[in-house]
Design a protein around this nucleic acid. Structure first.
Length: 350
DNA sequence: GACGAGGAGTCTA
DNA sequence: TAGACTCCTCGTC
């Protein structure tokens, strides 16, 4: 990767190695477990669901790689007169390259326009960069949700189980947590793919691939200069404040538990879920964000996520709702004026 | 049956 | 000790 004649910096080399790792493992992670069938996920305007995030990324990648990039490079080679048009278009939409330094990755040089191969490489880089950014955001979200470190080497036995439970849930893998009981993050990281397969013949290799993505992300983070934000689609790799601390207005100033380092409260957790409608909108969503009114769409899933977060496998909605009702007295949550089932309201939305 | 409300005891950081 | 978990009863839809 990278244009000829320019020597990549150390940071670039790290980034490229990381991208390779991500792309390789995404393909592995996209495999379906033996005996299970995944429905084909078509790239569409619909937001990725939690269960299908990686397949969606890969579908986008496949589509762009096999169709768009080929068409683009061929077309440009044959019709040099449209080159400038493309350049203008790319400059118009920098948000399509949301992660990396635009000078180095997003904006092709004149030489690139004269060489379709180079352009194809750059298009591939852009797609990879986009995919990597989304994966990093996913990891960041998971870290917040599970309250675990981004680096698997730092995980204790409980954290490993949380991560496995989350991965099972996220990618609809069969239950394999028992096969990896009493393993710390270090133990997990020292295992080979073969050892993963031995512990879980059905999807050990997939779990290994997902772990490798996390390891790669942690490695990249370690190599990245403090404060460098070129990879933080939000903030995973930045030493600045976490993403949730700055965006989305009133919610994050209080709700994001990762900002405070304090044990998370249920009301904070609910706000965190509400903050990620693209991931959890099917489970919990705003009815009226200004008034703080929200509805739990899938009570079992919300309870399950809360149970994972708090390491309470026996959590259910009955218990979760009891905790919510405790907030009535404290003036944190109440039932809306027009009471509806599974609908609650934050007392102080602003 | 699922959900909502609330009492009361227990656990845990 | 506060907050959350757990179990329980009772009422409503």
């Amino acid at each position: 990767m990278g244009s000829a004649g320019r020597r990549p910096s150390m940071l670039q080399q790290n980034r490229l190695a990381f991208e390779d790792s991500i792309m390789t493992n995404l393909e592995k992670g996209n495999q379906q477990p033996k005996g299970q069938e995944w429905t084909l996920v078509q790239p569409s305007s619909a937001p990725p669901t939690p269960e299908r995030t990686l397949p969606v990324y890969l579908s986008y990648f496949d589509m762009l790689l096999t169709e768009d990039c080929t068409w683009l490079s061929k077309g440009l080679a044959e019709r040099p007169e449209i080159d400038h048009g493309l350049k203008t278009e790319q400059q118009k939409e920098p948000e399509q390259c949301p992660i990396v330094d635009s000078q180095e990755i997003c904006v092709p040089t004149e030489l690139d326009y004269q060489n379709g191969v180079h352009l194809e490489e750059r298009s591939l880089e852009q797609v990879q960069t986009m995919v990597v950014g989304e994966v990093l955001k996913e990891i960041e979200t998971a870290c917040k949700l599970l309250n675990i470190a981004a680096d698997p080497m730092e995980w204790g036995v409980g954290n490993v189980q949380k991560w496995i439970l989350w991965t099972e849930h996220q990618y609809r893998l069969p239950q394999i947590g028992k096969s990896f009981q009493e393993l710390s993050g270090k133990d997990l990281c020292s295992m080979s793919e073969e050892e993963f397969r031995q512990r879980s013949p059905v999807c050990g290799d997939i779990l290994y691939a997902h772990l490798d993505i996390w390891k790669s992300a942690a490695w990249m983070k370690e190599k990245t200069c403090p404060g460098d934000s070129r990879y933080n689609g939000n903030t995973l790799l930045s030493t600045a404040a976490p993403a949730g601390c700055a965006d989305e207005g009133w919610m994050d100033t209080e709700a994001d538990s990762s900002c405070s380092g304090q044990p998370i409260h249920l009301w904070q957790f609910l706000k965190e879920l509400l903050l990620k409608p693209h991931s959890y909108g099917r489970f919990i969503r705003w009815l009226n964000k200004e008034k703080g009114i929200f509805k739990i769409e899938d009570s079992a899933q919300v309870a399950r996520l809360w149970g994972i977060r708090k390491n309470r496998p026996a959590m259910n909605y009955d218990k979760l709702s009891r905790s919510i009702r405790q907030y009535y007295k404290k003036g944190i949550i109440r039932k809306p004026d027009v009471s509806q089932r599974l609908v609650y309201q934050f007392v102080h939305p602003v």
